[in-house]
Amino acid sequence: MYDAGKILAGLVIFLLLVTTPVWWSFAMGAEVRAPKLVLPEGRRACVLPTGEMKATHMELLNRWRDLAVRHGDRVMTTWDGRKVRRSLTQSCLGCHTDKDKFCDRCHDYVAVTPYCWDCHVAPRGGAS
């Protein structure tokens, strides 16, 4: 075998790179666990059913912004007939009072950085 040392070193590097996810969590000493959300007490429904909120809340918020800011259309009727003001800081954070324990848990877990907070001021965690 010609250049056996170089080729074997290359193969080892290749295997290490491909298996990065396997040794990463051990090397970083991180605990791998799905995020647990703190849900608001006493409320059972959000403005859409939970499954839909999970999947499409980003699109809903984007649509809310356009409707409220550009068209002044600030009230929506929820799927169970309530009237809700289209407002991130008032309606969403009104129930989900702690951004750190609700929004951020999943967003951090899957490394999503929404740009809501470029403009909106996040309320201090824990204040109700």
Partner: peptide
């Protein structure tokens, strides 16, 4: 895609 395979990201 590493964001789905690595923790911490």
């Amino acid at each position: 895609h590493l964001r789905l395979f690595l923790e911490p990201v």
